[in-house]
Simulated scan of single mutants.
Amino acid sequence: MAALALMDFVLVAFVLVLFAGSRWIPGRSVPAAATEDLAAAGDTDTETEPPRAYRLNGAWLFALTAGAAAGFWIWSPRVLVWPDRHWGELLLVANAFAFALAWLLFRTGRRRTPAASGPSGRRRGLSDYFYGVERNPVWAGVDLKFFSYRPSLIGLFVFNVSAAAVQYTGQGSLSGRMLLYQIFFFVYLANYFQFEGGMVHTWDLIAERFGWMLVWGDYVLVPFFYGISGRTLIHVREPLPLWLGAVCCALFVFGFWLFRGANDQKHRFKTGGAVTIWGRPAETLGGRLLVSGFWGIGRKLNYTGELLVYLSWTLLCGTGSVVPYLLPAFLLLMFVHRAHRDDRRCRVKYGRLWEEYCRRARFRMFPFVY
């Protein structure tokens, strides 16, 4: 019990420190998505909702965490072993934290917006708890849904560094596989916080309500499941073949270019209107749908790129265990489901314009396949 109490304290302290940093560290503010985007998402209360803005200071929080990790690595790498050694206990308390936070959001949401909960009853109550009542609950001036990406991804970074520390303290050095994995993941996470403002235009932030589904995903699924390759690599002793390293590097670079490039093109189009893509003025359909660059080739190539990024570091684990390959398999299923879900929404939102776009961009994620 004492050990779990310590884990509770560590996890809550970690989240509270990041919350305080999100509240008080200066950062550029960006406005929330336009009202028309919210209405297209099915929100009926956009006229009464006050204007919102997001403070982009996640890069500072990530940099401070990375700096602290570097300091501990120089001073005593054994300190960084602690998160991995207590992974199971932290997983348990993270689940308890996620369920409790979802319940608190459910109760406060019902009190603030009783009309949104509709008729009472067990089925409706379970639905509100699972999906959430409020779309953007704000505590102490911090949007909780936007904030929760920070403990999620920074927590994942901490677990990755801890896995490296376990291998380093146990074997005296980092394997080529682990080193490459750490580089890939650091670039991926740092890039997220560098372009944190792009999250404002994602479907999760615009439309999804903040309930157990997103809370559990942020505080449990991402930090504990997404770093499974790093924990696997602790015990992989086979040297990294040159050909495999080259394949993984090529997959990462190409996937990252596809993932970040597609998202950047859409973000610039949404925020800047007329932009230049691949050296030419952006082409659109009705001024609403981008058909230049990646978006003229496939409708969800950003999903394809992100999947390739995750596959690049999973392949570093070799074939000794199937466990690390569960993550790209899970992401493949999730992205396919999201692509179908997005397609249904866009058909309702854009009508015939979407049919024309589908004829222009024939593929969803994999050219000539899907």
Rank of each mutant, 00 (worst) to 15 (best):
G155P: 11
L205M: 15
A68C: 12
Y325A: 12
S175K: 08
V138N: 00
Y219C: 09
C249A: 11
G286Q: 04
P119S: 02
R344G: 15
G58A: 12
V236G: 01
L258W: 08
I206L: 10
G27M: 05
R123T: 13
W24P: 05
Y350R: 13
V322G: 11
F130Q: 11
M213W: 03
Y129L: 15
R352V: 10
C346T: 03
L91A: 02
R280G: 02
W257L: 15
Y149D: 09
Y325F: 08
K300E: 05
N302A: 03
A13V: 02
V222Q: 06
A34R: 15
N57D: 05
Y370P: 00
L331V: 13
F366R: 03
A20R: 06
L38D: 14
G88L: 12
F19N: 00
L90H: 06
E208F: 06
L6R: 12
P119L: 01
V142R: 06
L105M: 00
S175W: 08
I183F: 15
S229C: 07
D43G: 09
L311G: 12
V93Y: 03
A163V: 14
L308A: 14
A262N: 08
L233E: 04
F9I: 09
I228M: 15
F330D: 00
L6I: 05
L180F: 04
V222F: 08
P51K: 14
T44Q: 06
T113M: 13
R352E: 06
Q194C: 03
P328G: 04
L105G: 03
W243K: 07
A250H: 09
N302G: 00
W212M: 02
K300I: 01
S175F: 05
D43I: 02
G58F: 14
R288E: 08
G305N: 05
C346V: 12
I183S: 10
L331R: 11
A98Y: 01
L126P: 12
Y129G: 11
V369I: 15
F186C: 01
A63P: 10
S117V: 15
V30Y: 05
A39V: 14
G245V: 09
A13L: 10
W82R: 13
N191C: 02
P328V: 13
Y226C: 09
E36R: 10
F330A: 15
G230N: 05
P77E: 04
A116I: 07
L332H: 02
L333P: 00
L153K: 10
E208M: 14
G273C: 00
V215T: 13
P324E: 05
G197C: 05
V309M: 10
L353P: 04
I25L: 12
W82N: 06
L315P: 07
Q194V: 02
L244F: 03
M1R: 07
V200T: 09
L205Q: 14
E134C: 08
W212K: 01
L308K: 08
R268N: 07
